[in-house]
């Protein structure tokens, strides 16, 4: 049941502690929701795990190996849907295939992903001409192409239309059933409730609560109520 294991992760920006002593696990075949108010350290945590930010302290492991040695097994979907403005949708997939050294046949996988995310009609359109939601879908497609063992997803629902959100939820469930671990940061508690197996709640860089939906909402009527109670009371 390997997967992601984070031990004492911390990130300091000058005198600002963005993340403090964070320890948690995301086992294979689970979707873990990373919740917290603005500035809680969710994005910094994901950036640290994705290799965008160097941690000040702590380590992270994927399948027992240091995460920085397992980059080929990670898929990352950032919050800001930034794509290469002059590359077509297909060329984005071509770049990812080369970056991950995927064997021949990735084209079919890519076509399947594009079809699933309703991007096949815009496959020859350049990134700069896509809408925000389409860019978001493209980044999701890029993250899925190499069939990662760990998906790091930052606010994936933002910018997606309801159909896109449904497709994304289904895609994430499918990846989970394939045995991947998924760490998902979101503000959309209703969607999180629907999709996540467990939750981590951050406040000012610290982990203030974690557990399943039942455990988190043991003394509350809903996840939202529990979330507000925890974060406003902390």
């Amino acid at each position: 049941m390997d997967g992601l294991r984070v031990e004492g992760l911390g990130k300091q920006y000058g005198d600002v502690a963005a993340v403090r002593d964070l320890s948690f696990t995301v086992p294979c075949g689970e979707i873990v929701g990373l919740l917290g108010p603005n500035g809680a350290g969710k994005t910094t945590t994901l950036h640290t795990l994705a290799g965008l930010v160097h941690p000040t302290s702590g380590r992270a492991y994927l399948d027992g190996m240091p995460i920085e040695q397992q980059k080929a097994l990670i898929g990352f979907v950032p919050e800001q849907p930034e794509v290469f403005p002059l590359l077509t949708v297909e060329e984005h997939l071509g770049f990812v295939a080369r970056a991950y050294d995927l064997p021949d046949g990735w084209q079919e996988t890519g076509q399947g992903i594009l079809r699933r995310l309703h991007l096949e009609d815009v496959a020859d359109r350049v990134g700069g001409a896509l809408s925000k939601g389409m860019k978001q879908k493209l980044l999701i497609a890029c993250a899925l192409l190499h069939q990662p063992k760990l998906m790091l997803v930052d606010e994936p629902m933002v910018g997606l239309d309801p159909a896109g959100q449904r497709e994304l939820v289904e895609a994430l469930r499918e990846i989970r059933s394939g045995g991947a671990a998924i760490l998902l940061s979101t503000h959309m508690l209703q969607s999180a409730e629907e999709i996540c197996d467990r939750f981590l709640i951050l406040q000012r860089g610290r982990l203030i609560a974690q557990g399943t939906l039942e455990e988190i909402t043991a003394q509350s009527a809903s996840l939202q109520e529990a979330f507000l109670g925890l974060t406003e009371g902390a």
């Binding site: 994705a50 990670i74 800001q80 930034e82 794509v83 290469f84 980044l139 190499h146």
Partner: peptide, 11 residues
């Protein structure tokens, strides 16, 4: 900006 999304986190 796309370098951060697609190049740096890649393999």
């Amino acid at each position: 900006p796309a370098d951060l999304a697609l190049v740096v986190p890649s393999a």
